[in-house]
Design a protein around this nucleic acid. Structure first.
Lengths: 366, 366
DNA sequence: TGGATTGACCGTAACGGTTCAGAACCAATT
DNA sequence: AATTGGTTCTGAACCGTTACGGTCAATCCA
């Protein structure tokens, strides 16, 4: 297989037109509106194009003129590469890709380094709109996106007034999970959560920090837990909450260790993500704690691996979320579209939650 | 959090300049070359910009002028959404994203429908170059990519003269695996392979079809097997090869079933991908065949799930491949760059390969 | 037959920037 | 006093295309 010869970049629509002795409009029409010129002339145009090595209208110039880039930008909190490792993000991406594909739109992943505040990449992206996936309230990249005159849809977080959004009711979802644990008898629980702010803070979380977290989703989930346990008289100020900046199984394990070391009497570890919960399970195993007999562990998201190990969790429709975000964005011209989509979640009973052992059982076995 | 007021689209670099009574050049410099104007004036420019709701230089117009889009295009065979499900593709994507990120380049996923021959999306993508991942020799989208005057790197397949490429030595890699099976004593083997052409052909593969497959990688792998088994006198024409269009565990299972139904005496199933091999394992389990005692199964790729089940396979560095492709593309200006990168593979012994049972063992147990 | 319609094509004006070669000005040096 | 150098800003060309509003001749219809 040989590659066709490559002219350096001489041919343009204008040069083609000159060569043919027709107007640029006509050449343009040959490509974009075949019905606007005779088949014979069109054939000649296309053939001359081939002969001159003209690759067809330049996409960038076209975009400038038509004010359409044919692509949707995607902004993520994490490094791009991270998105390909986190199952929930991946599901979202798949759904978004599906929507884009359906509309013939490209998907432009914007390269941002979450550590640095370099916002230039956002300004450089030639896109017709942005989907912003799960970033903190004060993300400078988000601000840069919003400053651009293109429609934007936020997925999950944050809530921004006047900006379309798709997500779930995190607070209600985790409240339902908490109520289940409460009805099982758990009162002394611990919480593992994902990062609450842009700054790293691996360790225990004060009530104030929990309430002022700039990651809305985490804030809402913690608030949901406060709701549920507060309603049955648990003093939330005394509930240990451990935060981890990195979202990984190893983080979950170390957070669980830190929490269990500090408070060995907790009967349940409530994790705000499945990944953290998988880490907690690993740590429990390492300590010889049986789940759920000795310790209840719950997650959030409903990823495949959670399913595999029978994790008690909340399933959210991540793929559907991605697709909804894409559709919402692509429907931006339609003033009757919904401005906010809240998807349903589902409690997954799993097998990692059970009633806590009584004091007696603790000492004498079940 | 409230969104800043949004002007419809009045402000442009020119209007800003007019408002300020300076030239467009100066406004442009305020954004791109701060050292070219006094700090005071720059401050005024930026402040007026904010006041007028000017979002900064339009990325598309800038791209037109500078001839840089700041993004790399990625072309895949499958639907975009598929890429997020196939572990090998995912690893590649992660590596590619890493490379792009490092260079501050966006990653533009081109939406192609492999069923249709709609090549327009390729022409519409405003990118500085393309990475083409694993497409058939005769893919029209690839042809469209090559017709564009931008650098291109092909990953895996096909081999195109004059086009940079990164991949592995599929033929040698699978030959090594085959030799291992041969040394274990396998002579009667079956093969499960991925699609060989753009057309669906679920079923047995003739020698001719294998040799003329338009998916170069599959062709090379089958050829590698022919090499190895031919060398020990196995008549390759008699070796059953089953092809599946869809790449999924279910496909692997059904292909294994089809093969085992037709030839129950094979002692090993050689699969050209781990996914297919996982399906073969499932089918073996369903039939009550113990692996590796009753049946040897091998894969190719070295995905995480293969590792988990101890599959005998060939590991290829998918992430590294993606990164190499990205780097190669981004180094296109450098004439001393390598034009082709062949990465190393590694035989993973695993635990799904063992010597075949003898006829006696078959009847009387091991 | 004559007015209206249609088909095929064209000229001009954007689209919104960047770039480069200077101009204007001022201070310092020769 | 003339030269040099540096800073700050400008004018005009250019990037390659498509939208818009035509022109002009051929065809249609009653």
């Amino acid at each position: 297989m040989a590659r066709s010869t490559h002219v350096r970049r001489p041919a343009t629509l204008a040069s083609l037109a000159a060569e043919l002795g027709v107007s640029r409009t006509t050449v343009s029409n040959a490509y974009n509106r075949p019905d606007q010129l005779s088949p014979e002339l069109r054939r000649r145009v296309l053939e001359t194009a081939r002969r001159l090595g003209y690759p067809g209208p330049d996409p960038v110039a076209r975009s400038l003129r038509t004010r359409k880039a044919g692509a949707v930008g995607l902004l993520l909190t994490e490094n791009l590469s991270y998105a390909f490792r986190d199952p929930a993000a991946l599901g979202f991406l798949e759904g978004l890709a599906l929507a884009c594909e359906g509309a013939g739109q490209g998907l432009h992943l914007v390269p941002v380094n979450p550590e640095r505040e370099d916002v230039a990449a956002v300004h450089r992206a030639g896109v017709d709109g942005f989907v912003v996936y799960s970033v903190p309230d004060d993300d400078p990249h988000l601000a840069a996106v919003l400053s651009r005159p293109v429609p934007t849809v936020v997925a999950d977080q944050p809530h921004v007034e006047g900006v379309d959004r798709v997500g779930i009711d995190d607070r209600a979802a985790i409240t339902a999970l908490a109520k289940r644990l409460i009805s099982l008898g758990h009162r002394r629980v611990g919480v593992l959560c994902m990062r609450l702010t842009r700054d790293r803070n691996d360790g225990f979380v004060t009530t104030e920090r929990a309430e002022t977290a700039t990651f809305h989703v985490q804030r809402a989930r913690l608030a949901g837990l406060t709701d549920a346990f507060g309603a049955v008289g648990v003093d939330w100020g005394r509930v240990p909450v451990v935060e981890r900046f990195d979202h990984s199984i190893a983080s979950g394990a170390s957070a669980a260790a830190q929490l269990l070391d500090a408070d060995p009497h907790v009967t349940a570890l409530i994790c705000t993500s499945d990944i953290l919960a998988l880490g907690a399970l690993a740590e429990a195993r390492r300590r010889g704690l049986r789940v759920p007999q000795d310790l209840t562990v719950t997650g959030f998201d409903g990823i495949a691996d959670a399913d595999r190990v029978g994790l008690t969790t909340v399933r959210q429709p991540v793929l559907e979320k991605g697709r909804a975000a894409g559709k919402l964005l692509l429907a931006s011209v339609d003033p009757t579209r919904p401005r906010e989509i809240t998807l349903n979640t589902e409690l997954v009973p799993g097998s990692t939650a059970a009633p806590p052992r009584t004091a007696e059982e603790r000492w004498f076995g079940p």
